[in-house]
Write a protein that binds this DNA or RNA. Structure first.
Length: 421
RNA sequence: GGAGAGAUGGCAGAGUGGUCGAAUGCGCCUGACUCGAAAUCAGGUGUGGGAGUGAUCUCACCGGGGGUUCGAAUCCCUCUCUCUCCGCCA
């Protein structure tokens, strides 16, 4: 949620910021909703003030044992009027809020302006892809090794699910443990949250109301419950409706969770293999910072994700996303892309974002310095890393001519072997 | 699944229809005392919205929603959550 005060005081900044995303701001609709809202609030308040005055007068008279029946009779009418006004007030507030909730975050000034991923900027490249002759992709490698079974997975759950077996299953678990250990050693605090959350949580981080079609939805009794698309949702919402002492910031959490995505609208993309699944594992980094700390914290968080790739000796590059390619809630995003020999290109394996106070405003997460006023804090998060895609990257980058796969040194203690064959 | 008890400010905890945004204690801030500190004393100390250049005025908030009433923290309905006991269960 954008700051309502910013819209009121500096609408140009908002209009220009949204334009960078290719979003046209409907000024007429905004001004109409805002004016209607304020008008009805003032009307209702004036009437309530009047009612309160008369009620106080009734109380005074009754205490003095005097007759107040004429006031009481006159007030009955006011009560009826007020009921209608309060309904109008709620509707006006809801309409205004609904409008605000559809506006994406404004890009940070350092974000390049562009329409789509072609305008993203490479800011860093690490490692050199090994020369592999006629590289196999992870599906061929995994299937031949007997550690990946997509056909039977389809039998269980349809497309975009997978079964890992033997060393494949162990590789997934090893990666999770390895990543978690590395983050814990760096001082991040592990969290193991629920995988089903209330709609409020999805609203807080920005998935709702706009992106319901991307979510898996279930229910408990009559009440809706959503499967998390990322640990960002439960971990960020841990502090919803709270005021944290500013001295505690930055707060750094990481969480290993499954992620569930309907992938609506991506039917043609990445249909082969396990790059794009309805269910996958992710170790997620989530940080809460003061506005002053936030820019450095984005760098810190991104570096933490990069450490995993470097420890696994996987070549990657860091991309600064342009305004048109960023997620709805993001103010600035770095994507980490890992080298995939079979595709002869880099593919996204992590996305590290700084949300400014956009999520904190929606989720009502604030920080208060001693003697200061509560202010929305800044939230950040990033994958550290997407486990399934790391699994893919290891198979493809560490493949050997005989179809076996070497185990990265850092992972050998977890795997208990140095090669998968 | 059954029975019962609860939810009040940063915390603890009063308040069962009007002078209650809410006693009291703790915590925190300011001042006095002191060379300084502790102790003591005095004062202050919630959040959000609306109007106004401003001092300020005003509205809402006692778990959520609805109702009764001139007036609700207080009465009624409903939901959620927490705790205790019984049953079931990974």
């Amino acid at each position: 949620m954008l700051d309502a005060a910013l819209l009121r005081n500096d609408l140009d900044t908002v209009v220009q910021g949204l334009a960078k995303r290719g979003v046209t701001f409907d000024q007429e609709a905004y001004q109409g909703l805002d004016a209607a809202r304020r008008r009805v609030i003032q009307e209702a308040e004036a009437l309530k003030a009047e009612r309160n005055r008369v009620s106080d007068e009734v109380a005074r008279l009754k205490r003095a044992k005097e007759d107040a029946s004429h006031l009481i009779a006159a007030q009955a009418e006011v009560g009826r009027n007020l009921k209608a006004l309060e309904t109008a007030e709620k509707e006006a507030e809801a309409a205004f809020k609904a409008f605000m909730a559809t506006l994406p975050n404004l890009p940070h000034e350092s974000v390049p302006v562009g329409k789509d991923e072609h305008a993203n900027v490479e800011v860093k490249r690490w490692g050199t892809p090994k020369a592999i002759e006629k590289p196999l992709d992870h599906v061929d490698l995994g299937t031949k090794l007997g550690i990946l079974d997509l056909d039977r997975a389809a039998k269980l759950s349809g497309a975009r699910f997978s079964i890992l077996k033997g060393a494949g299953a162990k590789l997934e678990r090893s990666l999770v443990s390895f990543m978690a250990d590395l983050h814990a050693q760096a001082g991040w605090t592990e969290v193991l949250p629920p995988y089903l959350v209330l709609p409020e949580c999805m609203y807080g981080t920005g998935q709702l109301p706009k992106f319901e079609q991307d979510l898996f939805k279930t229910h408990r009794g009559e009440d809706p419950l959503y499967l998390i698309p990322t640990a960002e949702v439960p971990v960020t919402n841990m502090y919803r409706d709270e005021i944290l002492p500013a001295e505690q910031l930055p707060i750094r959490h990481f969480a290993f969770t499954p992620c569930f995505r309907s992938e609506a609208g991506s039917y043609g993309r990445d249909t082969k293999g396990i790059i794009r699944q309805h269910q996958f594992h992710k170790v997620e980094l989530v940080a809460f910072a003061t506005p002053e700390q936030a820019a450095d914290e984005l760098e810190n968080l991104t570096l933490q994700a990069e450490r995993i790739l470097e420890a696994l000796e996987l070549p990657y590059r860091r991309m600064l996303l342009c305004s048109g390619d960023m997620g709805f809630s993001s103010r600035k995003t770095f994507d980490l892309e890992v080298w995939l020999p079979s595709q002869d290109t880099y593919r996204e394996i992590s996305s590290c974002s700084w949300f400014g106070d956009f999520q904190a405003r929606r989720a009502n997460i604030r920080a208060k310095a001693a003697g200061g006023k509560p202010q929305p804090l800044h939230t950040l998060n990033g994958s550290g890393l997407a486990v399934g895609r790391t699994w893919v990257a290891i198979l493809e980058n560490y493949q050997q001519p005989d179809g076996s796969v070497k185990v990265p040194k850092a992972l050998q203690p977890y795997m208990g072997c140095d090669v998968i064959r």
